[in-house]
Simulated scan of single mutants.
Amino acid sequence: MTEPTSAEPSAEQPPTGGVGTLDTVVLDVPDLTAEADFWKALTSGTVSSESDDWITVVTPDRWGIGFQLAPDLVAPQWPGQEHPQQVHLDLYVPDLAAASARAVELGASVLRENEQWVTLADPAGHPFDVCLKEGTEGVTVMGATFDCPDASGLAGFWAQVLGVPVTYDADGVAMLGGSRPLLFQSVEGYNAPRWPDPAYPQQLHLDIEVPDLDAGEAAVLALGATRLPGEGSGFRVFADPAGHPFCLVR
């Protein structure tokens, strides 16, 4: 994980109006209750919806984190690309040691440590970073970071989908602004998901809320998305140009 700073070069891309808005970051998990309880406790969030195969936790800073039942999930084995993480969450914390210890107490495992952030895996094996930010109150969500072969290109796609600017683009890392930032990091030997093939799982996906599914589908396909199998009365499934699945929801 590389965190852009204001001292580093950036490139502004103006917002386009966007196709939709980021509604929920959704993790595939083999145990709904264990995973939701972990993230609820870590972020001091609350459960906003719950069913037999889905739980949504809303954090105090208004990020929706969803958990989708995937009993046969092939967990990532960070940092390699044989079973890649695909996407991870970055959290801001005021005290790195205390936040890391709390995460471990709740069931996380430490994968890597340095002075600015600690990489951990949650109970389902999904990596996430706790990043030092002095003065922040409690645990807040910095954003979601996508592994990809071309950070600049994928940031451009998502900037148009969400209608937010690219606020940083250099050295294989790009970042979108807005109230719910997305980050992109170029990864050597990137291994894309092949949803719905369980041997190449998605690990995590975004739900994008749109006012009209037909118009939303036409717009994301024109931007470079690919239609994937799977739909219901209120959602349709796509892949971004790097192969990450996402849903348009209404």
Rank of each mutant, 00 (worst) to 15 (best):
S49F: 09
L120A: 05
P94E: 08
W39N: 05
L27S: 13
G66C: 03
F38K: 08
V25D: 03
D61A: 10
G135W: 00
D72P: 01
Q77N: 13
V26H: 03
P15S: 05
G17R: 08
I65Y: 01
A124F: 07
P127S: 10
W54C: 03
V104T: 14
L32T: 10
D129S: 11
V110N: 00
V25P: 00
W63F: 12
L120P: 01
G107P: 07
D122G: 06
E50L: 11
L32C: 05
P123M: 02
T16K: 09
L91Q: 00
G66K: 07
G66P: 04
A103Q: 06
T46E: 15
E50S: 15
H88F: 13
Y92E: 14
V26G: 05
L89Y: 02
K40F: 00
L106W: 03
G125E: 04
Q68R: 15
S51T: 12
T59M: 07
P71R: 01
W39F: 06
W39H: 08
V47Q: 11
L69D: 08
V104E: 13
T16S: 15
S48I: 15
L73R: 13
E35I: 09
L32Y: 05
D129G: 01
D23V: 11
F38P: 04
L27N: 11
I65W: 00
L42S: 00
G107E: 08
A101N: 10
D52M: 09
H88T: 09
